Computed example of a mutant assay.
Amino acid sequence: MAKFNKYLKALRERVFLDIGTVAERTGVHRNTQSKYEDSRDPPFDYLVEFAALVDVPLDQMLIKRLEDSKASDDAISKALKALKPGDRGYYEIKSANEPNMTYNAVSELMQVKITEASHKLIPLGATIFISTNSKSIDANSMYAFLNPMNGEHFAAKMVLTATKLKLVFDSTERKDLVFNVEGGETESRYILKTLGLLGKIIKAELIF
């Protein structure tokens, strides 16, 4: 059994939840949950749900996953740096295609390609332009994220209420992500940072 799978099992047992309960609350089959605690690598969306359920910061869980990764030491090191802000407001945003890119939080537009299932309005392969200094939540806007697990970019709309933060995909390919927010703006910002929020999408170019 891989170390990360054991880690997931330990987290479940720490909060006294059985496999069936975790499976139901994270939206997976009971057998799937058992496999996640044995040898199967869980997807990012599941880890987001599971982290919220067992009350563990998602970035802490991602670091554990990276430590148990079969990737090269150099790749793991770069991925770990991508989870942590650098000095003076800089974030080291690492991409599988452009591993050496570093962006200032107040820089000009960032240009990336959508490579992970996203909101239905922005298909795979679309090139998007992101304002990295625009991260205030506007339900009518689209936002870009860098999945810290795989270095892929995706897009979603966001909805923020007094008690919930929601990433909306409006797609059959990916279910929406919902987080309970009890700590106000500080907690919502922490969640978004952990999810890899890059900023507001200003425009998108589609390839036909």
Rank of each mutant, 00 (worst) to 15 (best):
M1S: 08
K3W: 14
F4E: 10
N5Y: 06
Y7Q: 11
L8A: 07
K9M: 09
A10K: 08
R14F: 12
L17H: 10
T21R: 08
A23R: 02
E24P: 03
T26E: 07
T26Y: 03
G27W: 14
H29R: 07
R30I: 14
R30M: 10
T32A: 15
T32N: 12
Q33L: 14
S34D: 11
K35D: 14
D38K: 15
R40Q: 15
R40M: 13
D41T: 13
P42L: 08
F44I: 09
D45M: 03
Y46W: 14
Y46R: 09
V48K: 05
A52V: 05
L53S: 13
D55C: 05
V56L: 05
P57Y: 11
L58T: 00
D59G: 00
Q60R: 01
M61W: 00
M61R: 03
R65T: 03
R65V: 00
K70T: 07
A71C: 07
D74Q: 14
A75W: 15
I76H: 10
K78F: 05
L80D: 09
L80T: 08
K81Y: 07
A82N: 14
A82E: 05
L83I: 12
K84N: 12
P85G: 06
P85K: 02
P85R: 02
G89M: 06
S95T: 13
S95V: 02
S95M: 07
A96R: 01
E98M: 05
P99G: 03
A105H: 07
S107E: 14
E108Q: 11
E108S: 15
L109V: 03
Q111S: 08
V112E: 09
V112P: 10
K113A: 02
I114L: 12
I114P: 14
T115K: 04
E116H: 03
A117N: 10
S118I: 05
H119R: 00
K120F: 09
K120S: 12
P123M: 00
T127I: 04
I130C: 03
N133Q: 10
K135V: 11
S136Y: 12
I137E: 12
D138M: 06
N140Y: 08
M142Y: 14
Y143K: 06
A144N: 09
F145N: 01
F145I: 04
N147D: 14
P148Y: 00
N150Q: 06
N150T: 09
N150V: 05
N150R: 07
E152M: 10
H153F: 15
A155K: 02
K157G: 11
K157L: 02
M158H: 06
T163P: 08
T163L: 02
K164M: 13
L165V: 11
F169A: 00
D170I: 01
T172R: 00
E173Q: 10
K175Q: 08
N180W: 01
N180F: 06
N180L: 07
G184K: 00
G184E: 01
E185D: 14
R189E: 15
I191D: 03
L192K: 08
L195E: 13
G196A: 09
L197W: 04
I202Y: 04
E205H: 11
I207Y: 07
I207K: 13
